[in-house]
Amino acid sequence: MALLTDTIPLLCRSKDDVVNFLRGAGTSEALLGRIREQLALDRGAVSKYKITRDVIGQLNEQGDQGLGVRRALLRRVTEFDDFSTCWPDDQLKARGLVAQIRDVVGVKDSFTRMQQERDQEREAHVAARRATEDKLRRRGALYADLRTQISNLFGMEDTHKRGLELESLLNRIFSLDGIGIREAFTLRLEDGEAAEQIDGVVELDGQIYLVELKWWAKPLDINPVSRHLVRVINRAGVSGLMISASGYSSPAVQECERFLVHGVMVLGELRELVLLLEREESIGSWLRQKTRMAKLERRPYAVLDVDF
């Protein structure tokens, strides 16, 4: 502001020119009116420097309200390039002061831009953190909803309806982890008779799994497990996943172990899914680990929190 007070009078030949220069930057007549009155009464009592100093002082006192005018005033000075309008003796000094103001403004603008960039970066980090937190809250709400719905199944007396509800819930659990799914479907013969009932299909890391769900009162024996193994072996390159609410009998597990020379068969328990939902952990990671143990350790029936 001190530089402006020294520079503006040099850019204007007359006192009226100073007033007009300040007016051109948006200075209100409320500020300039008193100066015009003084000039009308006694021009000699008011200098160009006093006019500039008084107006800039009042603009500063306005705070944010006068910010727009102060910026416009700076812009008018820094963009000034026709020094032929100045008094000849003032031209060189005016050029130097304008250059100095441009330097000061340039440094200030650089700091302002850096501050703005820091503010933008901080705002971006805050927005990203909030987005992550919102995503986690939504994910947590979905996990809680699925836990509640699975818990409700234990009190359901209609076993057929319970099985259908479990199939739907399993699809939602897999889709929550971004795993490709296909819901239950039936393969039929030419006469329309059902040939196979597939509870679901999931695809993880390019590997397709035929899914079978069973909610029995006792551990699954070899018969339902063998039927699922037949479905799997009849499809080249397809793996099997069976989920039981009651575990498996030893003969059923042994049959799956023997099957591992032909393909991948993974045995899971409903309680493992409940545990994953309680911990809000990835069902994809769970299936990968079980598949890895089935392939490398020949253990199709590895249970979460017991075997890994």
Rank of each mutant, 00 (worst) to 15 (best):
K50A: 13
V225A: 00
Q65E: 13
Q207R: 13
Y209T: 08
G206D: 03
A141S: 06
I173V: 11
E123G: 12
F154N: 12
E212Y: 08
I198S: 07
W87T: 04
L241D: 03
V104G: 03
N234Q: 06
S250A: 14
E37H: 09
L169F: 08
L92G: 05
D16T: 09
A131N: 00
K15Q: 07
G192A: 04
Q116F: 07
F21R: 04
L276A: 09
E61H: 10
I56V: 13
L73F: 09
S244D: 00
V126G: 03
G247Q: 02
T148C: 12
Q65L: 12
K50Y: 15
G180F: 09
P219E: 04
Q254S: 11
T291I: 00
R36S: 12
F154P: 00
L142Y: 01
D191Y: 01
Y209D: 05
R182G: 15
G247A: 08
H125T: 12
R147E: 15
F259D: 00
H228Y: 06
G33A: 15
D119R: 12
E190C: 10
N171Q: 14
P88H: 05
H262Q: 08
K295Y: 00
G284C: 02
E167K: 09
D17G: 12
V105N: 04
L270A: 10
V232A: 05
K135E: 11
Q197C: 12
A217G: 13
L153I: 01
R70K: 13
D205S: 08
N223F: 07
D89P: 05
T7F: 08
D145C: 03
I198A: 06
L169D: 03
D103V: 14
I198D: 04
L304K: 00
G206T: 05
G247Y: 03
D221Q: 05
I222N: 08
V19Q: 05
K108S: 13
K135H: 10
K295D: 05
I51V: 03
S110D: 08
Q120N: 13
